[in-house]
């Protein structure tokens, strides 16, 4: 028996006894260490002033480790990004683990390490947590839940969208979805396809610090760019026109989508956001975003026409609706 296979999470690690205490102190406290957490009270006591943003999300991804990230990184970046998208400084996070009995300790440690590394990018702290171990077969490896709070320093909202506003995307789209697809199905790939998984707070902070008035902002996770734009158009009852040529898509993502017959704008992202600003700030916002991601681009405008719809102008000048992602796409060509 190798050392590695010996070191697996047992039901007792969630039992509240010595093993659990060990796990908390030797693993979680070690990597997440901060004053509030190690106080080890029943609840974390926080001091924040002003309007707050509060969000929660549970994370599961298969495979758990992929090019460009892992479940731990997503679990932190996801919640931090939700706060950032609300115009809030990501400050405090909670963290709950549901672990399937038998998970390698080394994998858990790896995930925790990447959570800690990701926290540093925004400065957010994990201040409370919980661990449950469930019997083999009742969960798929490990699930992580994180909740977060932070002080709002801006209030972007789709309600502020107005005709004439410019829509930008913070980088090329579809990487996460494409990357997961490729590794899940075991495809042979040419080129280097990594997930975009990242903490977006530094980009948001740079925009806000420069005085960009972000009207609306959302990270393009499930359903991709297409879902965000459609939700905005439908909620605000305005149209959004997008120049297909302006939407940045990496060659590798394009290639994979052509192989599968998928639409890159519908693929999930984990470190890409969509924002709208007034036209006079669009160029500046684009330049600020390009400091970290050169592919950031102005992709379209909010318009009076096409209420509730997103209209894509093809490179040939014809227009079509960019629809909400649907399940199976059956060919319509006869």
């Amino acid at each position: 028996m190798t050392r590695d296979t010996k070191r697996r999470i047992q039901l007792s690690h969630g039992g509240g006894g010595v093993e659990m205490n060990q796990l908390i102190r030797k693993l979680f406290f070690k990597y997440f260490s901060n004053e509030i957490l190690i106080r080890d009270e029943d609840a974390a006591r926080l001091e924040i002033s002003g309007p707050l943003a509060f969000t929660t999300d549970s994370f599961t991804v298969s495979p758990r480790t992929f090019k460009g990230g892992d479940l731990g990184k997503i679990a932190v970046a996801g919640t931090v990004n939700d706060l950032a998208m609300a115009g809030a400084i990501p400050q405090y996070l909670s963290c709950g683990f549901i672990i399937e009995e038998g998970l390698a300790f080394s994998e858990l440690e790896q995930l925790v390490q990447s959570m800690a590394a990701e926290l540093e990018k925004s400065g957010a702290l994990i201040v409370c947590g919980d661990t449950k171990v469930v019997p083999k077969g009742t969960a798929d490896g490990i699930f992580i839940n994180t909740s977060g709070v932070g002080q709002c320093i801006a209030a972007p909202s789709w309600t502020k969208l107005e005709p004439g506003d410019c829509v930008l995307v913070s980088r090329d789209v579809g990487r996460h979805g494409a990357c997961i697809l490729a590794s899940r199905e075991g495809l042979a790939l040419q080129g280097d396809l990594a997930s975009d998984c990242a903490t977006l707070w530094p980009d948001v902070k740079r925009l806000l610090d420069a005085g960009i008035d972000i009207k609306a902002m959302r990270d393009a996770t499930r359903g991709g760019l297409s879902a965000v734009l459609n939700e905005w158009a439908a909620s605000r009852e305005l149209g959004i026109e997008v120049q297909q040529q302006q939407v940045p898509i990496a060659q590798e993502v394009q290639g994979l989508c052509e192989l599968f017959g998928f639409e890159p704008m519908e693929l999930a992202n984990e470190g890409t956001f969509v924002l709208a600003v007034s036209a006079d700030q669009a160029e500046q916002a684009q330049a600020l975003l390009q400091q970290s991601q050169p592919s950031a681009a102005i992709i379209g405008t909010v318009v009076d026409a096409h209420v509730g719809k997103v209209v894509l102008t093809t490179p040939w000048g014809s227009q079509r609706y960019l629809e909400l992602p649907k399940g199976e796409l059956l060919p319509r060509i006869c």
Binding site: E258, L259, F260, G261, L329, L330, P331, R332, I333
Partner: peptide, 9 residues
């Protein structure tokens, strides 16, 4: 099968 849906067409 139409491999890749419309792509196969």
């Amino acid at each position: 099968r139409l491999i890749g849906g419309e792509q196969a067409i």
